[in-house]
Design a protein around this nucleic acid. Structure first.
Lengths: 148, 148
DNA sequence: CGGACTTATTTAAACTGCTTATGCAATTCC
DNA sequence: GGAATTGCATAAGCAGTTTAAATAAGTCCG
């Protein structure tokens, strides 16, 4: 039943905290010239390796023609490359270039810097509690991926 | 020095987990017909009460004319109202309507539902660790607000 | 094998929502 | 009381979507 759950876990508060992180995190893209979608695509390609346009359409929240056009733009900026798919001559494999990977890497470092800065403002106990929850949070985030 | 920090706190992993949450959370707006900016404005107004356009411009990551136009759209949909500011006849106070508040509320419930569902897939130990870290996470999220 | 259907991508046209530039009215500052 | 400032609106333009339709390769039978 829901009762015992509520005792040790306040989903509302977690959702609110995550929402707050999201709202603040989302402002980061706005600074550099790259949109959220652009960064998300580069991020996905960096994590998962070369992908077809169709596969990207499934992971990003945009239509397939939008992916085609986005990839065309990114290709023009030298951030991704189109390669023929060996097993299907209709298909295209999109791969991040080194320049594209550098952008994602730079952003990751920026995030780490910001989080470190925040962590410095917490008490040691708070830091420990977050550190202890980190594996669970990471697993939860991964579970969320599959959550339709 | 940074050394002792790294021992009890992996900012990189936290940043990655939060990034995952963000990437998945951001897909929620895409389902309903409201954009991220729209929802962010409604959210802010719900939390902070009636605000001036200028104040909204500061919190959201868009220009002042964009806020004017957004508010005009939202007013047309009955989600916010414009009211004269008593102390300055140039200014406008934007307030969410009940309909606007319902949208934010519905989304919060949806988030809670999703997080509860995820929490159910964790072990009791994992849930406890997150629950224990929740106050620290909430404070961290709040600190992030001020982090320029 | 060959035609019908499906799948992967592109192209084209239209629309949404942002930006910059500008205007105008109310307020503030000597 | 005029000059500068502030708060918002309007206008024009552009970026990045969307839907609709085209092309080309692969699949599936009969």
């Amino acid at each position: 039943m829901a009762g015992h759950r509520a005792l040790d876990f306040d989903a509302d508060e977690l959702a609110s905290a995550i929402e707050e992180f999201t709202r603040n995190n989302i402002r980061l893209p706005a600074r550099d010239k790259y949109s959220f979608t652009t960064l998300s695509v580069l991020h996905t390609l960096t994590r998962k390796g070369p992908m077809r346009l169709t596969a990207l359409t499934a992971t990003e929240q945009i239509t397939q023609p939008a992916v085609t056009q986005l990839v065309t733009r990114l290709e023009g900026e030298g951030l991704v490359e189109r390669h023929p798919a060996p097993e299907d001559r209709r298909a295209v494999l999109v791969r991040v270039t080194d320049a594209g990977a550098r952008i994602i890497n730079g952003r990751r470092q920026e995030r780490v810097r910001r989080f470190t800065e925040l962590a410095d403002q917490l008490t040691p106990e708070e830091r420990h509690s977050i550190a202890a929850a980190l594996p669970a949070l990471t697993r939860m985030a991964a579970l969320m991926d599959g959550q339709v």
